[in-house]
Design a protein around this nucleic acid. Structure first.
Length: 416
RNA sequence: GUGGGUGUAGCUCAGUUGGUUAGAGCGCCGGAUUGUGGAUCCGGAGGUCGCGGGUUCGAAACCCGUCACUCACCCCA
């Protein structure tokens, strides 16, 4: 038997209602906050991603689905959404108008990683991006949109982590300080961290090895070393979130993995997910638009991992199928007549079903029951002879005889 | 890429120190009710025991390899 590819998942009929719920709720909140939907391709020129995300990141180094197009150009299945949105925004000149500065998107992303709980090779994100706004109020808006979305989905025990990683210059200054602090006993750190010391010292703060955590406890905090501008921006966000009663934790160790982030970074985690605990994350990327040859344009956004959210959704019975009428037709004349009625009811806007495999009335009614039909219409050869069919209420078991010609009208009244 | 765990019916799982024809529950189909669903009872269908090799008189079980799934590391949503 042919199977699906490793790390990709089918969404089965039992799961699609909860996905509709996640998506509808996201649309509703994004709309309320003034974001408009954009739909962009799931593949782009490889260069778009390697330049945006950063050539030294794991994503670009080893996780992208990259393949040559027939003309030889290198294409890549998008590993994240922001780069493509920035490309589209520049291509279609959406930066100038207040109506197109705030965008949201849904869709599949692709990363070649080993699958794990809450991590897949094709996964789905809901993301928002706001362009051209320097004011910290937009950071607050975006964080509160994310927070309200999760609250509305009734996710429990969430933590909002906040940090500012400053501008490029702030970061360079900080990394020097950090290295100064670490260098005396770097040789006692784990092998990973020793590598990070030269490759990406910030990540040492993110290490989970107990020794490394302990040893960096007294490390200088980037927040204390921010430039005046970055520091003030961050402070305004903190007070703004307090004003909105959104609880947060300042986490100076919160380091984002993509190169384009600057200043504000944030992440919402849940303790109920195993090791992949981040369900939504984002931040500012003030230099990305310029990096992709647009005008200098500050920007901020987030992305939500919908598979992870779906794992946290409370058990709920989403509104099952709309009430339906079941056509129980059998016998040489009854079956074809019921099939015609099925068609007529559907044309009149009624949800109607039957079971083509069932041959006797017992099996037909059993199927009606499985489908949670509200009514069944019993049409056997006897009913064809008399021209009167039986309408059975499946909950009360009450039956009434209805002349065939009045049936549609009667059903329409029942379903009004 | 590295490490651990698990592979037996559609699903969840039993299967004794290796021993005859591999089981249960749920689900599916049928019957009890010649034309009336859910509950109950009865019956039926459904299996290359992941795959390949080896040990043995004999392997679902033991050994080797391999593949898949899964969790974790790394990293990320």
């Amino acid at each position: 038997m042919l199977r699906s590819i490793k790390g990709v998942k089918d969404l089965l009929p039992s799961q699609t209602p909860s996905w509709h719920h996640m998506e509808a709720t996201a649309r509703s909140w994004a709309g309320r906050y003034g974001f408009s939907e954009i739909r962009i391709p799931i593949f782009e020129l490889t260069e778009l991603f390697s330049r945006s995300i950063g050539g030294a990141t794991d994503i670009v180094e080893k996780e992208m689905y990259t393949f040559p197009d027939r003309d030889g150009s290198s294409l890549t299945l998008r590993p994240e959404g922001t780069a493509g949105v920035v490309r589209a925004v520049l291509e279609h000149r959406l930066l100038d108008s207040i109506t197109t500065r705030k965008l949201f998107y849904f869709g599949p992303m692709f990363r070649h990683e080993r699958p794990q709980a809450g991590r897949y090779r094709q996964f789905h994100q809901f993301g928002v991006e706001a362009f051209g706004i320097e004011d910290p109020n937009i950071d607050i808006e975006i964080i509160s949109l994310l927070w309200n979305y999760f609250l509305d989905l009734e996710l429990k025990d969430l933590t909002l982590h906040l940090n500012s990683i400053g501008t490029q210059q702030d970061r360079e200054r900080y990394i020097q300080e950090l290295k100064k602090f670490l260098s005396p006993n770097i040789s006692s750190f784990c092998g990973n961290c020793q590598r990070r010391f030269t490759a990406n010292p910030l990540r040492i703060l993110d290490c989970k090895v107990p020794f490394c955590v302990e040893a960096t406890h007294q490390a200088p905090s980037i927040i204390d070393l921010l430039s005046n501008d970055s520091g003030a921006h961050f402070q305004k966000i903190l007070t703004g979130l307090k004003d909105l009663n959104i609880p947060f934790t300042i986490n100076p160790r919160l380091v984002r993995g993509l190169d384009y982030y600057s200043r504000t970074t944030f992440e919402i985690t849940s303790p109920h997910l195993g090791s992949q605990s981040t369900i939504g994350a984002g931040g500012r990327y003030d230099s990305l638009v310029e990096l992709l040859q647009g005008p200098p344009t500050p920007a901020v956004g987030f992305a939500v991992g919908l598979e992870r959210v779906s794992l946290l959704l409370p058990e709920e019975s989403y509104p099952p199928a709309t009430p339906c009428v079941f056509l129980a037709g059998f016998g040489t004349q009854g079956k074809p007549e019921a099939f015609k009625l099925l068609h007529t009811l559907r044309k009149n806007g009624i949800t109607a079903e039957t079971d083509h495999r069932a041959t006797n009335l017992k099996a037909l009614l059993r199927s009606a029951d499985k489908l949670s039909a509200k009514y069944s219409i019993i049409v056997g050869d006897d009913e064809i002879q008399s021209g009167i069919v039986i309408l059975r209420n499946m909950e009360t078991k009450e039956q009434q005889s209805i002349p065939l010609k009045d049936l549609s009208e009667k059903i329409m009244i029942l379903f009004q």
